[in-house]
Simulated assay, not measured.
Amino acid sequence: MNTKLSQLSSEEKAVLARLKAWLALQLAAEAVRNDEGLRQACPAAGISLKLAIRGAGAGMQLVVKNGIARVYSVGWPQLVLFFPGSASAIRVLSGSKGTAVPLPLRPGAFKALGFFRKASSRATELLRGAETPEDVRARLLLAATLYGLEAVAGDTYLARRMQIIPDGVVAVRAGEIEYFVEKRGNAIHVIEAQQRPDAVLSFADYQSAIDVLSGKRQAVVALGSGKVRIEGLLPLVQGLFVVLDRLSWYLGVAL
């Protein structure tokens, strides 16, 4: 039985709110990178929009300019979408009713909001659509998983476990897709390319990544069948699976 939102502590609500916001922005950015039509729909001057949640740490900002989408923790956006509390952010970013206050700061603010909504909707379509190319769906699922690890790593529940996990960099690969994840202390970050990672987690193909990351196939079974391979510093990769379990718990919280 899934844990309910009302059962979470204030800290857990803040972590879940940050997770929802971080994934919303990162997946919107991935949708822009993978959809030419969406890039064409972006206003010519570009857009910048920040999600800010009271009591849940610094805001996060999506910037799209010249067809390039990035997510930052700093900057002066066209519009801030402000949530008065963690519960409101969780509900709204889960597609339910809640309070979100748009605060325009610069010209083009509401065009930025409209584009963010369009990009978020397109990300959902790409994740769920049967016609989505395997490589695009695999990339979105990998992004959701790895940026999710980044968002929950600071959870107090994981503090002692994070101390046990060795520091290092893991390359995560599926076909032509490659991400690098760095664990340092109690933090996890998706980083730029690293020439010599400490470990490599590789999927045999895009469909293998989709099956494991969507929950259709257990990682243990995939490892046993050779669909997933681990090389290098094994305790580092095993430690990331511990964080992944916590991420799955958060994503399973019921409203």
Rank of each mutant, 00 (worst) to 15 (best):
H189Y: 04
S225F: 00
D198C: 03
F203E: 02
L201I: 03
V181F: 06
L201E: 03
L223N: 02
V200K: 04
D211Y: 11
G215A: 11
G226C: 03
V172I: 10
F203W: 02
E182A: 13
E192P: 02
L213I: 11
K227H: 09
I191Q: 13
P197D: 08
V181A: 08
D198Y: 03
Y206K: 02
G232Q: 07
Q218Y: 04
K227R: 15
V212R: 11
L223W: 00
E178V: 12
Y179P: 07
A204S: 13
A174C: 06
K227C: 00
L233Q: 13
L201N: 01
A209W: 08
G175L: 02
R184Q: 15
A204Y: 06
R217F: 03
D198P: 03
E231L: 12
Q195E: 15
R173W: 03
S225P: 00
F203H: 02
G185I: 07
P197Q: 06
V172M: 04
V181T: 08
L201F: 08
I230W: 00
F203R: 05
F180G: 12
L213R: 08
Q195S: 15
S225E: 15
S214D: 11
A204N: 04
L223C: 00
E182Y: 02
R217Q: 14
K227A: 13
H189G: 07
L201Y: 03
V220D: 14
E178R: 15
I230S: 08
G215T: 11
E176V: 10
V228P: 02
L213K: 05
K227P: 00
V221R: 11
R217V: 15
D205Q: 04
